[in-house]
């Protein structure tokens, strides 16, 4: 009897161990990106753009070319790369502080120009790298370093819903929100990320995948408890679903 490999590390993922905290969702999301790149056979022409935040070292974990951008500017950098090398597969990988706070202008306008790039947006409602400050996506009442009494809508506003906002624009072709709180949802997230890159490979428009994720360290919870907390608290505010699928990529797949 021989043994067949059912699951192992995708080729586009480098051998470097992740620096992320135990249980952090970034590792799985990185792997899903690498799997999509491998399945679409575009690893030799993919260029990633790393953000500022916990995933600042994303470039260490993939086996293809990378640019490391300034905080929030990844969509502008990706615009420059994609316009210069239109046959490349260009994606940004950004957190909620990077994309939904300091980089709001860059993401909205890259989306609105319909840049033919893919954006992977990891929303865990907190700044991780700097030690747990309030993010634009922090929930009402959620305690962070900079909202020690809980986020108060009257002074700090409400959680920004980026997918919904971007879906109001004409140009993006695919805007979806997924999570990886269970294996079933993880497989849906895998499909969404695949769809987003497939659209780019086909030369279509701007694709955006928001992944609602956990931050066990800064939430002060165990990883498994964090996924439960996410399900009960984040998903009511950030409902899963596809907000825009102009070309019907989900049906065609």
């Amino acid at each position: 009897m021989t043994m067949k490999k059912v699951f192992s590390r995708p080729a586009s993922l480098s051998k470097t161990p992740f620096h992320y905290c135990p249980g952090c969702d970034h590792g799985v999301i990185h792997r899903l990106v690498a799997e999509a790149i491998d399945e679409l056979e575009v690893g030799d022409r993919t260029i990633g753009v790393a953000p500022v935040g916990c995933s600042v070292f994303a470039y260490d974990y993939f086996n293809f070319d990378f640019n490391q951008a300034a905080h929030g500017r990844a969509p502008a950098v990706a615009t420059g790369i994609k316009r210069t090398r239109p046959d490349s597969i260009v994606f940004t990988y950004q957190g909620d502080g990077d994309l939904a706070a300091i980089g709001t202008a860059e993401i909205i306008h890259a989306a609105n120009r319909g840049e033919k790039i893919t954006v992977i947006f990891v929303n865990n409602a907190i700044y991780g790298m700097t030690g747990g400050q309030m993010a634009p996506t922090t929930l009402i009442g959620m305690k962070t370093q900079t909202s020690p009494y809980g986020r108060d809508a009257s002074t700090a506003g409400n959680p920004i819903k980026m997918s919904e906002m971007i879906a109001t624009l004409e140009s993006p072709v695919y805007v979806t929100r997924v999570t990886i709180n269970s294996v079933a949802n993880l497989m849906k997230a895998k499909k969404a990320i695949y769809n987003a890159f497939k659209l780019q490979k086909e030369g279509k428009g701007f694709s955006f995948v928001e992944v609602v994720a956990i931050c066990p360290t800064n939430w002060g919870k165990k990883p498994a408890d964090s996924h439960k907390w996410l399900t009960e608290n984040m998903l009511p505010v950030f409902p899963l679903g596809t907000f825009k699928d102009t070309l019907g990529v989900e049906k065609s797949a």
Partner: peptide, 13 residues
């Protein structure tokens, strides 16, 4: 698939 550190490999008979 759930492992954030891609530490597990699975084989099947």
């Amino acid at each position: 698939r759930s492992c954030p550190d891609v530490a597990i490999e699975i084989y099947k008979e």
